[in-house]
């Protein structure tokens, strides 16, 4: 019965991999943030507040990356009915929502000195806000059913519909934003970004990815343990 063999193998592999990913996460984030805070130069216009970018931009990348990852996991879960794919989607959703939220908060903080307001209906921020709502819908649907399997499958279909809609939403929001206001300030200046800014950005981005891997592995593991406890409970109920 592969569905029971797999979790065992997964847990074994995860236990072996987890320490390394966790250490790598800490190292990458440590180095990345150090470089972002102390090595990278301040911006000639924005001053020190440009350092928010080193959290804001990788968070935005992660928020989008994780939604795509959920969609891939959902497709695997729907086509092959692989239980680990369901768990991966369930475990990823709150992390993605967290990164989307972090993007929104850092965007607001970063924009404050320039706009003079805590929120502007900037194209990129608005798209991120909608992505955040998509994450909330995914999480709510996942937990809306008494039968967890039902929740997995409904959320998987929603994730696939969502991933088709994300480019449409992005395009329509850009379309709308250009009508109403000038281009975004959250912009890396083309391909010629200076290495002193690029390196901290890339290293924190790698750190965020590793963080995601660590937390997803941990969350899947705890889901498996919870499932095992439920199975034991049920078995005891039947035996008595």
């Amino acid at each position: 019965m592969h569905r029971f063999a797999n979790p065992a193998r997964f847990t074994r592999i995860a236990d072996r991999v987890l320490p390394f990913v966790a250490v790598a996460t800490a190292a990458a984030l440590g180095v990345g943030f150090y470089m972002a805070l102390f090595v990278a130069p301040p911006d000639y216009q924005q001053g020190e507040s440009v350092r928010i970018m080193y959290v804001h931009v990788p968070s935005a990348w992660m928020a989008m990356f994780i939604y795509v990852a959920i969609a891939v996991a959902s497709a695997v879960a729907l086509i092959w009915r692989h239980p680990l794919a369901d768990l991966a989607a369930k475990a990823s959703s709150p992390i993605g929502a967290g990164f989307a939220f972090l993007t929104l908060v850092t965007g607001s903080l970063w924009g404050r000195p320039m706009w003079g307001t805590w929120w502007e209906w900037d194209g990129r921020l608005t798209s991120m806000l909608i992505l955040f709502f998509l994450y909330l819908g995914h999480m709510a649907l996942m937990h809306a059913f008494d039968d967890q399997q039902r929740g997995y499958r409904a959320a998987a279909i929603l994730a696939l519909v969502g991933v088709i809609n994300i480019p449409i939403i992005k395009f329509s929001v850009d379309w709308w934003a250009t009508l109403h206001q000038p281009a975004s300030v959250f912009r890396l200046d083309g391909p010629t970004i200076h290495p002193s800014m690029l390196w901290p950005l890339l290293i924190t981005a790698v750190g965020f990815k590793l963080y995601y891997v660590t937390v997803v592995l941990l969350r899947i593991k705890s889901e498996l343990i919870a499932a095992r406890l439920r199975a034991l409970d049920l078995a005891r109920l039947k035996a008595s």
Partner: peptide, 27 residues
């Protein structure tokens, strides 16, 4: 269709559907 049989189906529908309604609204 996704919320059929959900515990709070009626409340859930807006949460799922409204973000996807933004493109037709904009255009």
């Amino acid at each position: 269709a996704l919320t059929l049989g959900a515990r709070r189906g009626g409340v859930l529908i807006p949460l799922l559907v409204l973000p996807l309604y933004i493109p037709p609204l904009i255009f």
